[in-house]
């Protein structure tokens, strides 16, 4: 969106044009959903996104444009997620999605790698190893890796989503990378 168009829409949204608000914020919804998903888990993410957008709608007239709209929205998403967890007496911990239970007889199961070429097998093994290692990470470090590499957020946006400083994001990222590599080494042994 070009600057002039952005300014027109934000002015309209600030003065109460809900369609302008929707046009402005729709592009940010997948990333906001990802942030909420990472913070509260799959079951509650949509509720947190809705709360975030309602709060953003109410607060937009006072948005001073000192930070980017995206960073501002992620900060709201963080606050909503924390409110959500508090209201349910939960802490920041996410249940990793489980694979569906396969109730077929063992004889019916085929080797999923049997029909794959060797490069694809290696790729599948890498993905499995990385996912397995991610599942063993503590929440704080897993979250920063997910936001950075899976959701492609900038340091500033991660800082807003996690409510920490940019330096802390860097420190956590560094530790998370080392931890993930260590877990993968241990998995291999």
């Amino acid at each position: 969106m070009e600057t002039g168009e952005f300014q027109t829409r934000i002015r309209a949204a600030k003065s109460g044009d809900v369609d302008a608000f929707a046009e402005l914020f729709e592009t940010l919804r997948p990333a906001t959903t990802a942030v909420a998903y990472r913070l509260v888990g799959p079951n509650d993410a949509e509720d947190v996104v809705m709360d975030t957008y309602l709060k953003a709608w109410k607060a937009l007239p006072r948005f001073n444009e000192r930070s980017s709209l995206k960073t501002w929205l992620y900060r709201i998403a963080h606050n909503c997620a924390m409110d959500y967890l508090r209201s349910r007496g939960r802490r920041l911990e996410r249940i990793m999605p489980q694979d569906e239970v396969d109730d077929r007889d063992i004889g019916e199961l085929e080797d999923p790698k049997a029909s794959l070429p060797s490069a694809a097998i290696e790729k599948a093994e890498t993905v499995t190893a990385v996912r397995g290692a991610m599942a063993k990470m503590d929440e704080m470090h897993r979250l920063v890796l997910e936001l950075r590499f899976m959701d492609n957020l900038s340091y500033a946006d991660i800082a807003a989503a996690m409510d920490v400083s940019i330096g802390t994001v860097m420190s956590r990222l560094f530790n998370a990378k080392r931890k993930l590599q260590r877990i993968m080494r241990e998995q291999k042994q």
């Binding site: 998903y37 993410a45 999605p97 993905v127 990385v130 959701d151 990378k177 590599q181």
Partner: peptide, 21 residues
């Protein structure tokens, strides 16, 4: 599988993306 360099791990994470969301 050999020890995986960070570059490869990062590539895998990026490729995984937010498919699960």
């Amino acid at each position: 599988m050999k020890n995986m360099p960070w570059r490869e791990i990062e590539k895998t994470l990026r490729e995984t993306g937010r498919d699960d969301v």
